[in-house]
């Protein structure tokens, strides 16, 4: 019973935070709400028996990826001008159409879920099981993901190299 209450509290927090994240004009405020939303999802993962996924959600999504988002926004230095532009883009005429269409989809989703609903069995999945399935049946996906990451690494290295060379040239020129 307590778990169900906790689940609904976390789910409400996640929904409210996500809506707030979409509607904020200030990018930093939106990101803070998105981080809160991710933390709420982590609590949900923990409650439905996936502690490992919950921990990774915090460490990787909330703790690393969102930091990089904030980092990028810091570099852009948007300020008041960015807020104004964002407010202009958030006119009802722009978001009303997609919102109505997605509400239709939401109603369909709720109907599907309510038809198939049964008691969700909570079985805790340990880190070991996650590891075994990652390097067992899903090893191909892991390898493909690693290739993708390697490609990203090589790409960013290529983009960053130009500046590195220029720095070296300046150093040599100064000596």
């Amino acid at each position: 019973m307590l778990e169900i209450v906790l689940f609904y509290i976390a789910a409400t927090v996640a929904l409210v935070a996500t809506v707030m994240a979409m509607t904020r004009a200030n990018a930093i405020h939106a990101l803070i709400y998105l981080i809160v939303s991710l933390l709420a999802v982590a609590v949900i993962f923990f409650l439905i028996g996936a502690p490992f996924a919950a921990a990774l959600e915090i460490v990787i999504y909330a703790g690393a990826i969102m930091v990089l988002f904030v980092f990028v926004i810091m570099m852009l230095n948007l300020g008041e001008k960015g807020d104004k532009q964002e407010r202009q883009w958030l006119q009802p005429s722009i978001w009303a159409g997609p919102a109505i269409l997605s509400i239709v989809l939401l109603i369909e989703l709720v109907m599907v879920i309510s038809q198939t609903s049964g008691p969700v069995s909570v079985t805790a999945v340990s880190a070991k099981e996650v590891g075994l399935s990652l390097f067992g049946p899903y090893v191909l996906a892991v390898e493909i993901a690693s290739m993708l990451l390697l490609a990203g690494l090589v790409g960013s290295f290529h983009l960053g190299r130009r500046y590195l060379d220029r720095d070296n040239l300046e150093k040599k020129g100064g000596q």
């Binding site: 921990a55 990774l56 909330a62 703790g63 690393a64």
Partner: peptide
């Protein structure tokens, strides 16, 4: 992992 998560936050 909890400890790592908290330090990263």
């Amino acid at each position: 992992l909890f400890f790592l998560g908290m330090t990263s936050l």
